[in-house]
Write a protein that binds this DNA or RNA. Structure first.
Lengths: 340, 340
DNA sequence: CTGAAAGCGCTTACAG
DNA sequence: CTGAAAGCGCTTACAG
């Protein structure tokens, strides 16, 4: 293994000077820089990143903490982030945590362990651990949640406007004549069994504006973000509310399970029941029927998050909070309500 | 930050003894071990892994190199590997590389950079870079390819028997009376435009045993492992061979694209055309129609790979090569051929 | 069983 | 602009 000592010996300079060349410091003579660079190139010398990390209190990596490893939507954002980071030649390390794990605690552990220079949270909440987060002073980005109101100047956030999108979905269903609309996905949060999910709140608001009071006990069924749970949740929902003519599934995977369950019950989509999903997974465009859904801009979310983090890392600047536009994709899973 | 020095100072022992306790060495008195352990627990002290890595020529991490970041099947194996590794309290670092990147080169880079104690290759070929691999002396595992014939005593491999499974698929279609069977997916490899893919070779063999010579030019269409390319490939295939009554899609994602394309052409699955996929993704059980497919044992592949690597890491031993059983899942996408 | 000391490969004030 | 030296937090022969 070639080390900095070898380069120093061969070049005739000290390891201090070699180190300065490696780190592109200004205070090196052109002569030394060229000579040393040449030798580094020839030998294919790569500085030992572990030794560097030990000295530098911070490494050159960005850590990405992903909440929930089975979430197809997060996987696609993660993929985009990876691509972007590779373009910029930045190193990343990915950490998956469980749905119920505390991402801020994880961040604290990672900071001592990996010493990242910045952190991207993919799908955390943060506000549940505000106190702990205030101990973290690295530039961070929260993706798929709005951190505007948390008041941390080192935490940017980029997210779809879930409230607005949820409202759009229900407005769309209302405009097709549906009034008996069910909602599938997510969980009531906190001790008060509150519904904090923006998609749900937006959906409820759309109904309210049309004089319909959403009955959670009857027309809502919680479930996690997978086809399996979507399937089961639909069965429960329709046993309770067989008169529903439309379903808003909080993710495409839930929607796929929903559509399959409806078929197995003997109901046709969209003739008997309309279904709208959320996320805009590639597969939504290949399912039978094609799924009508809200497409989140995964590429945009990823790009903005990465760009913001790297810019703040290099030049400082304030944290920003941005709502990234979504798009409604017209599929084949929505039809006019013929029941009423 | 608590360091080993603090623990030493508080406990009254030297940092050497503290280090021995941390590393569970035998040559420490019970008294010292207890006293020091207690303090470590109280303080929530975590040894700095970077400093450890610097001394130990090897870190405590296992690196996982994943080929192709858009591969849903690999993602599900990766997830299982992560779960297993976490159970065993082993740290991992994941590196995604492009479809066409050289995984052995990547491994060499990672070894100097991260100093992993072992490597798991998810979906590489290795044999294309045999020479370079012979420079790698860490325990390694290749998943989803058979390395038996490569002759490296540090490389185990676990894979589905693709030849056998491919043969099974076509036998299944033949038994339903299909003789005009198309194949979708993969690429001819190497300069000689050879078909090295085990699934394809098995399929061709099944046909041959039944007196049918597979016509690659007419009844095969290469494509990558996604719904999009499956959709396009099916269109091309059927423009050329509209008399096919069955399609073997080399992955479930290809199959989903295939089924959708057939529907858009105006053909029904399975009434007009039977389709069998490969992988056994969860979603295959929720699509319309439910997809008949070969389920690869992702959990088994992951568990065996992890167990083998950790065992060889701890106790040495020879590399092993194992074919992990697959299972045919009967869906709704295969029917008797009524054309002949 | 324990401590003192060398050293892993690098970075960075400090002098000059 | 450059070198000598301290030190990052740990591990591990070496003595005793």
């Amino acid at each position: 293994m070639t080390t900095i000592k070898d380069i120093a010996r061969i070049s005739g300079y000290s390891i201090g000077t070699v180190s300065r060349v490696i780190n592109n410091r200004a205070d090196v003579s052109e002569e030394a820089r060229e000579k040393i660079s040449k030798i580094i190139r020839e030998r294919g010398y790569q500085p030992n990143s572990i030794a560097r990390k030990l000295k530098q209190s911070v490494s050159s990596e960005v850590s990405i903490i992903v909440r929930g490893s089975k979430n197809v939507f997060f996987e696609s954002i993660l993929e985009e982030i990876q691509i972007k980071m590779r373009e910029y030649d930045e190193n990343i390390s990915v950490q998956f945590i469980g749905e119920t794990d505390n991402e801020v605690e994880t961040a604290a552990r990672i900071i001592t362990y990996l010493k990242p220079k910045g952190i991207i949270f993919l799908g955390g909440y943060i506000d549940a651990s505000r106190h702990d987060f205030s101990q973290i002073h690295l530039p961070c980005v929260l993706v798929t949640n709005d951190a505007r109101d948390f008041g941390f100047d080192n935490l940017s956030s980029f997210t779809t406007d879930y409230f607005d999108a949820g409202k759009y979905v229900v407005d769309r269903l209302l405009s097709e004549g549906h009034t008996r609309i069910g909602i599938l996905g997510g969980y009531p949060e906190g001790p008060g069994r509150e519904y904090k999910n923006g998609k749900i709140l937006g959906a409820v608001e759309a109904l309210r504006e049309n004089g319909i009071l959403f009955d959670f006990d009857r027309d809502y069924e919680p479930c996690s973000y997978s086809a399996e749970s979507g399937y089961k949740a639909l069965e429960i929902l329709f046993r309770r509310s067989p008169d529903l003519t439309a379903v808003f599934a909080l993710s495409d995977s839930i929607a796929f399970g929903t559509i399959r369950a409806l078929k197995d019950i003997g109901l046709r989509v969209p003739e008997d029941v309309s279904v709208i999903g959320f996320d805009g997974l590639t597969y939504a465009n290949y399912s039978i029927p094609r799924l009508s859904t809200i497409r989140q801009d995964t590429a945009g979310l990823a790009k903005k998050s990465v760009d913001d983090l790297l810019m703040r890392l290099s030049y400082g600047g304030e944290a920003v909070h941005e709502l990234v536009p979504y798009e409604y994709i017209e599929g084949e899973s929505v039809a006019v309500n013929r029941k009423s």
